[in-house]
């Protein structure tokens, strides 16, 4: 008899799980708002560094010129040996070379 009282229905367990998940999501959301407000306090100093040192890029990786400064890379930096060579830096699969289509240069390799 006692066992029967303690046993939850399966739907109740499911509802508890969903409610718990939403509570966790709410807690994470509150945490994100707190982090963002803290970031806004530091932001002034970070923006001042960017302005003062005229920085243009984030330090995401430092192995190749075009992954350290993706915005400043030249036409050949991704393919230093010859155009169309196989990319040899692992980060090249994550940080693509910049888009040079606006320069209007066309290159055909046959």
């Amino acid at each position: 008899m006692e066992r029967k009282i303690l046993r939850f229905r399966r739907s109740t367990i499911f509802f508890i799980f969903v409610s718990m998940s939403f509570i966790i999501i709410t807690v994470l959301y509150i945490q994100s708002r707190i982090s963002i407000s803290r970031h806004h306090i530091l932001e002034k100093d970070l923006v001042e560094i960017v302005e003062n040192l005229s920085l243009t890029d984030m330090v995401l990786s430092t192995d190749a010129r075009y992954t350290r400064h993706p915005t400043q890379a030249d036409l050949f930096s991704a393919f230093q040996d010859y155009p169309g060579s196989i990319e040899h830096f692992p980060t090249g699969s994550v940080i693509p070379p910049p888009d040079f289509s606006y320069t209007g240069m066309v290159m055909r390799i046959e």
Binding site: V59, L60, S61, T62, D63, T67, P90, T91, G92
Partner: peptide
């Protein structure tokens, strides 16, 4: 690791 690649310095 995909972002770090062969970087020695990374944040």
């Amino acid at each position: 690791p995909a972002l770090k690649g062969w970087s020695v310095i990374y944040p």
